[in-house]
């Protein structure tokens, strides 16, 4: 896939970092404001997709990036499952027990496990969407070769 013009590349350089930060904000404040793991994860993947569309695949070694994203995707789900399983050990033998202290409602560090679940789901969704996009691009490059 070919890249776009210099105007698009420069604008992408300026904006992609801010989109990434906004995705992290949406994920971390999932238990306080609207948003959460799913929305923030797709915003994170969107910043990567923007970079790939603007710069083309000549600049990026896509296959290595794809194996990285599949690893993070599986890791996200496994950590999510592991955190849920800890409820069986410490939370009175209940799956998905929220046994961490809840803290003051409304603060950033509160609500026990919910921010951790949000982070896991955010990483997993971002890596999944990016994996599908990279698979489509790699498929086309392999066809053309």
């Amino acid at each position: 896939m070919k890249g776009m013009t210099i105007i698009v590349k420069k604008t992408t350089q300026l904006i992609a970092g801010m989109i990434f930060l906004y995705g992290i904000y949406i994920i971390l404040h999932g238990h306080l404001t609207p948003g959460g793991g799913f929305a923030g994860g797709i915003i994170l993947a969107g910043s990567f997709i923007l970079l790939i569309l603007a710069y083309g695949s000549d600049f990026l070694i896509l296959v290595r990036k794809e194996s990285g994203s599949t690893i993070y995707e599986n890791l996200g789900v496994l950590v999510f499952l592991f955190l849920a399983l800890t409820g069986l050990l410490f939370g009175g033998r209940i799956f998905f027990a929220n046994w961490l202290p809840h803290g003051t409602p409304g603060e950033l560090i509160s609500a026990g496990f919910l921010p951790l679940y949000n982070i896991c789901v955010g990483i997993e969704v971002a890596a999944s969407i990016l994996s599908i996009f990279l698979a489509l691009i790699i498929f086309k490059e392999e066809i053309l070769k």
Binding site: G30, L32, G36, F96, N98, P105, A111
Partner: peptide, 17 residues
């Protein structure tokens, strides 16, 4: 749940499965 956002409280605590 300790979560101010009710939607997050439902999807990650009550409906974790």
């Amino acid at each position: 749940t300790g979560s101010v956002n009710l939607v997050t409280g439902v999807i990650f605590d009550f409906r974790g499965y």
